[in-house]
Design a protein around this nucleic acid. Structure first.
Lengths: 187, 187
DNA sequence: CGCCGAGTTGAACTGAATCAAGAAACGTGG
DNA sequence: CCACGTTTCTTGATTCAGTTCAACTCGGCG
């Protein structure tokens, strides 16, 4: 899905509006394992993934990485909170593959938000969608067995489960790598 | 905190705008245990809590109630997803005390969103805040012990923990009532 | 080849759930 | 204002899903 398609799937922008908006994005290509944001930095850009994939993660006190979210093709990748509030990010943002991204800075988003009422609507709808997804993961984590969480993961991110290291998925699901390995094999 | 104070804490509405916006809210009083929304219904209104408190919950297949969120004084109470997308709610919305609420319908919010660019901004900021809170609960649930989650709860909802039945809090925290009782007493 | 990280498998351990039984608190009607 | 039933909370014993620790396998890749 292109960025343009993504935008109009939420709000009916006119062609002129779309052109104006798209002009503010910069196409960038990043290599696998590239870090877009580090913990503690303010997330100055948000990225639409045209090709590739990414994840957000943080480090526990013991130094272990915990995957917080996966981002596939055709979605915005960010530390949403950090970006929209311009506050320090709790998370790292990492490309999990060589990726093609469309980047936009906070300043430019602000300008667009002020200029286009529809842009505010777009971001609002996007936020509500993210909220619903995080709430749904929360329910899965909170009240499902390891097995059920694995199935939930496969339905939510069908393509991702065999494209990233096991450990990333395990920490996303709140279980150890060993448990995930066992589940996968007893399937 | 009054609704007016709440609104201007997010966006600098003018006094005329505020008056116009506030006119669209209806003050209602509900008794303890009143259900504002049932599962499967579309959430037609959103409620600002001036006095009292509430929670959202759902029923597991085995019929047990699971508290999804608590709402204290000075916040909006809703099944956000259901309200903003006008889709069936997964949750029940219940008053936990006799409460004074300011209610607004989806239709009226839509009108205000269309009329005031600032209103879109307000809802967007509100959504991002909710997102951050849900994400923070997710982290607590996913990687903390029962004990740590209890402490998290006390910092997030300091006043609530002794005002509602233990079972509501336990299910909110993803543990059994017995476990919470033990934790509380070993404190 | 032989190393090295990623994944698998096994055995022992543990935090929290479950099951079960009382104790305390609560409100409702007599 | 007390008695009684109901709901809420506590405490104990047992069980279990998932963790931890540790060793082993496998598939690249220098």
């Amino acid at each position: 899905m292109t960025l343009e398609d993504f935008l109009i799937s939420y709000v009916s922008f006119s062609q002129e509006e779309l052109n104006d908006i798209l002009e503010n994005f910069t196409k960038i290509e990043v290599a696998k394992n590239h870090l877009l944001i580090k913990e503690g930095q303010v997330c100055k850009n948000i990225y639409f993934i045209e090709e590739g994939m990414g994840r957000s993660y943080y480090l526990k006190k013991d130094g272990k990485e915990v995957t917080q979210w996966f981002f596939g093709e055709g979605v915005f990748m960010s530390s949403a909170d950090s970006f929209f509030k311009q506050s320090p990010s709790y998370y790292y943002l990492e490309a999990l593959d060589d990726s093609v991204l469309y980047s936009i800075s906070y300043g430019k988003i602000e300008t667009l938000l002020a200029k286009y009422h529809k842009m505010e609507t777009f971001v609002r709808l996007l936020s509500i969608d993210m909220l619903a997804k995080v709430a749904s993961k929360l329910n899965a984590i909170q009240f499902q067995t390891a097995r059920e969480r694995y199935d939930y993961m496969n339905s939510e991110f069908p393509d991702i489960s065999y494209r990233v290291p096991l450990g990333h998925i395990a920490s996303y699901l709140g279980m150890t790598q060993e448990t995930l390995s066992r589940i996968r094999h007893q399937a």
